[in-house]
Design a protein around this nucleic acid. Structure first.
Lengths: 237, 237
DNA sequence: TGTGGCGAAATTGCATGCAATCCTTTATAC
DNA sequence: GTATAAAGGATTGCATGCAATTTCGCCACA
């Protein structure tokens, strides 16, 4: 029963579900996240919901105000800029590590992911947003540093959240074309080019995003969450 | 009552207390951290202890094994190397931001901290370890990026923990002399030198640390924790 | 003496309950 | 009609209880 040790448990599943919902813009910034409603949805008690919310708050996806409950975070423009700036610098570190680790298997994983992106390109929007974020995360995993991976994940998620606040609804967010080029540069071991491309790629995303100042939005809590909750209740990942 | 919104609450206080205890080597790597014992010590229920442990686990200071409770983390040598490598790269980012933000106030804060370090130099060892870590954290705060600050904190803490596993007991860990030089370089706006010094400083710490392979140690749980717990019970920071 | 298994004690996983806090609505005064 | 205040409802903060799991000591047995 050693393997069961690693079995994701309910808190993990709930956190993941909520995170996905946020990144796929089912839960929009500012929406309230009451413990009992969520608990009811997910078929667990407030205890586990609380844990999950706390975890997401640590990642910066959820704001947690004392005695006032949780809501999907609404990062300020300033925070967003900070985030995107840091992101380019952190992902620089990723690039140089991936170049060092480059191998056929790694290239294979990258290609496989890109294929998924291409396939999803014409599907529903939220999925392609998630895949785009996951491209960066995959790169970070291939960099071989667990801590770095965690940071890229976190920053990536938060940038994704930021995009749902500030980006135009139909911007592509992450050009598949650009991912393609980055992979090619990495394949050639051309760190300089890869780095430049990544930088350009990220600033492009940021530039497209960080200008709308549109305020507010619907603050009511949706039950479009149902599909996410169902997965958890059924024990899926 | 707006200010009270920010009032640190019990979970924060407990986390801080435990973190300090770990960094000051009162809780050594591998020690068990049972919820009820801690709860009793700190005068709170297991709920809050649990939250705190979870938070520390997210920071990497505590290992949390399902159904088997929490213990102070025992980072492997490999993790430690990864950590120290990342640290130099992350603190590079800090340096260049601090140089950009440099001002008399900032210089003042740095000097003030150094003064504390000098003062504590001849006091008990644990305190000077903590102060040394906090030097890096202060720098990160002055870099002006909240996210970067969080990462530096986390990495700093984890490196501190690592040192208590692998470093020789009486190594100075962080040379005050070196902090002095870094401040001077920053004051002159000499980013290159500051960077080089910091890099050298960090690799020196890592080199001093990452060789002992000594195994084990006392696994029993101490109640040297009492002073830390008392602070929390009395509502102090 | 060493090994395997069984049962009790300890410890965590999770749900629930109660008190404290905050938010909203209604009532009342000006 | 506006503003203020108080009551009621909703929601979180925290403690406690019970079931499930693990750990450890004990004894049988080779």
């Amino acid at each position: 029963m050693k393997a069961a040790d690693k079995a994701k448990h309910r808190t993990d599943m709930i956190s993941s579900a909520l995170r996905s919902a946020i990144l796929e813009r089912v839960l929009m910034p500012g929406m309230k996240l009451p413990e009992d409603s969520l608990g009811e949805r997910f078929g667990v008690s407030r205890t586990l919901i609380r844990q999950s919310l706390e975890r997401l708050a640590a990642e910066g996806l959820v704001e947690l105000r004392r005695n006032k409950g949780a809501m999907v975070a609404r990062p300020s423009l300033e925070e967003a800029r900070d985030l995107f700036e840091l992101r380019t610098q952190i992902e620089d570190l990723v690039i140089s590590r991936v170049v060092k680790n480059m191998s056929p298997e790694i290239l294979g994983e990258l290609e496989a992911h890109l294929a998924k992106e291409v396939e999803a390109e014409h599907a529903s929007e939220p999925i392609s947003i998630r895949l785009a974020t996951e491209f960066h995360i995959l790169l970070a995993r291939l960099a071989g540093s667990p801590v770095l991976l965690r940071y890229v994940e976190e920053i990536g998620y938060r940038c994704g959240l930021t995009l749902s606040l500030y980006a135009r609804p139909h911007s592509t967010d992450c050009g598949i074309q650009e991912h393609r080029q980055i992979i090619d540069a990495l394949a050639k071991g051309d760190e300089g080019t890869a780095r430049k491309l990544m930088r350009h790629h990220l600033t492009a995303v940021a530039d497209r995003a960080l200008f709308r100042t549109e305020e507010g939005g619907p603050l009511l809590y949706l039950d479009a969450l149902e599909p996410y909750a169902k997965k958890v209740r059924d024990g899926g990942a």
